[in-house]
Every structure is written in structure tokens, then in C-alpha cells.
């Protein structure tokens, strides 16, 4: 692989961040949506324990959106309007383009994590040790990756018009079926098993294990679940990217 020049990666990342964060119509809903949900269900209707439980689930829910949309919708748009073609004609390695987009999604995750955490501490009375907060932040960053990959697969596969609808079609049901909105144990058994196919379920369980509210399955199984989701998505994305022409 061709070595990535740091200056170029910096420029690429900076431009992607500027481009996304200047789209107010995208930034506000992406940030406000999980915060509003948490304020309603975690603060107004919850207590300290549900506040912690829902904080973790809404962090997962919050980071999914920007990752799916920045890759799914923006890549589809850039592919269709020719920007991706211009970039492919330059000597810039493809990995740089993807790393810049990942960096933007990670920045979004950081903002969402910070806002939800501030709300949780100040309004829901959530308390955690520094180590737990750090693990939760690491989880927010980790949770971004599988959805970046899924978004990338969609962005490289569908048109710019179809991608937003399809992302929504996946984003909301996945959130629901992973137990991010309602505890997974309230679901019929079949749906509980179906959740094992979803990375957001595994991420939620990893997060809940930080405060001992998970279902008690081996953590390694959840990490494996996330990995097994990332691998085929990455494979499909690489194949799609290489066959773009």
C-alpha cells in the first residue's frame, strides 16, 4: 500500500469535517436526535439507573447515524457527482479518503458522547468512575467503525437518491431490534436471537457490561459479533470500490 502523506491526510480530513459540519441541516438532527430521545426517556421519564442504561444505548444510537449517513449518503453523492472519480484519478490512495471520512464520523461520535454525558451527569444524576467513562468513550469510538463500513457498502452500492431512504430504513429498525430503545429481554425470543446478527446489539451489550447491566453473555462473543460484521462489510466495500469504474 502506498504510504499516506500526513499533510495530505490532514487536508482531506479537514475538508471532510468542514464540508459535513457546514451542512447544518445534517449536523443539527444528527446531534439533536439522540439528545432529545435521552432527555425524554432517560431524564424526564427515568431514574438514575435507567439514566445510565439509556445513556449507553443512546450513545450507540447517536454514533450510528452520522457514521451511516456520512458514508452511506455522502459517498453515494460523491460517487454520482464525480468527486470520487476525480479523487481516484489523483495519486491519493483510497484509504486516505476513507480514513478522512472515518475521522469525521469519530469526531461526531465524540461530540455526541460529550453532549449525552453532560446531560446524563447534570440532569439524570448518572455517576461513573473515570475508568468507566473512558471505556464508554472508547466504546463510542469503536461503535462508529461497523456503521462506517455498512454505510460505505451502501454508499458504493446505491444511488444518491436511494441511499438516504435506505439508510433510514436500516438505521431505525436496527436500533429498535438491537434493544437500544427498549430492553432486549422485552422482545420475543426469536427477535432476541435475531439481535445477535446486529452489531448494535453487541455494542450495546459491551457498553452495558461496563455498568453490569448486560445480559451476562461472554464479552468475547460480543466482540466476535462486531468483528464478524465488520469483515464482510469491509470485503464488500473494497470490492465495490475497486469495481467502481
Amino acid at each position: 500500500m502506498i504510504a499516506i502523506k500526513l499533510h495530505s491526510l490532514h487536508q482531506e480530513t479537514l475538508c471532510d469535517i468542514k464540508s459535513v459540519f457546514r451542512s447544518i441541516g445534517f449536523v443539527i438532527p444528527a446531534i439533536a436526535f439522540p439528545c432529545a430521545f435521552y432527555l425524554f426517556f432517560g431524564v424526564a421519564m427515568g431514574n438514575q439507573q435507567t439514566g445510565s442504561y439509556l445513556l449507553i444505548n443512546y450513545i450507540i444510537f447517536g454514533v450510528m447515524g452520522p457514521a451511516l449517513f456520512n458514508f452511506g449518503v455522502n459517498v453515494a453523492t460523491e460517487r454520482e457527482n464525480g468527486l470520487l472519480a476525480l479523487k481516484q484519478l489523483s495519486p491519493m490512495p483510497a484509504s486516505q479518503y476513507l480514513m478522512a471520512k472515518c475521522a469525521t464520523a469519530l469526531l461526531f461520535s465524540t461530540v455526541i458522547f460529550a453532549l449525552l454525558s453532560i446531560i446524563a451527569v447534570t440532569m439524570a444524576g448518572v455517576t461513573m468512575t473515570s475508568a468507566q467513562w473512558l471505556m464508554l468513550y472508547a466504546l463510542a469510538l469503536l461503535a462508529t467503525i461497523p456503521f462506517c463500513m455498512l454505510g460505505l457498502c451502501m454508499g458504493l452500492s446505491f444511488s444518491a437518491k436511494a441511499a438516504p431512504a435506505l439508510v433510514n430504513l436500516i438505521y431505525l429498525p436496527i436500533s429498535m431490534l438491537s434493544g437500544l430503545w427498549l430492553p432486549i429481554i422485552m422482545f420475543p425470543e426469536l427477535l432476541q436471537w435475531f439481535a445477535w446478527l446486529l452489531p448494535s446489539y453487541h455494542l450495546s451489550q459491551i457498553g452495558l457490561s461496563i455498568i453490569d447491566l448486560d445480559q451476562g453473555f461472554n464479552l468475547a462473543l460480543h466482540l466476535l459479533g462486531v468483528t464478524l460484521f465488520i469483515i464482510p462489510c469491509s470485503f464488500i466495500a473494497i470490492k465495490k470500490y475497486n469495481s467502481l469504474n
Binding site: Q11, E12, C15, L83, L86
Partner: peptide, 29 residues
């Protein structure tokens, strides 16, 4: 690729990046 430049018929650039920002990022390649 390092010795070739191209202007294609399609070429939508990010709508909210300025002329200078677009050129800087392509120059960095």
C-alpha cells in the same frame, strides 16, 4: 497518476467548500 491531470464532464465538488479549500486538498495529493 502523478503525471496526469483530468477534467471530466461530471465533477461535482463539495458544495460548501471554498475554491481555495478545494484546491488545497487536491494539491496535497
Amino acid at each position: 497518476k502523478t503525471q496526469v491531470g483530468a477534467m471530466l464532464q461530471m465533477g461535482g465538488l463539495p458544495a460548501n467548500l471554498t475554491v481555495l479549500e478545494q484546491l488545497k486538498v487536491f494539491a496535497s495529493y
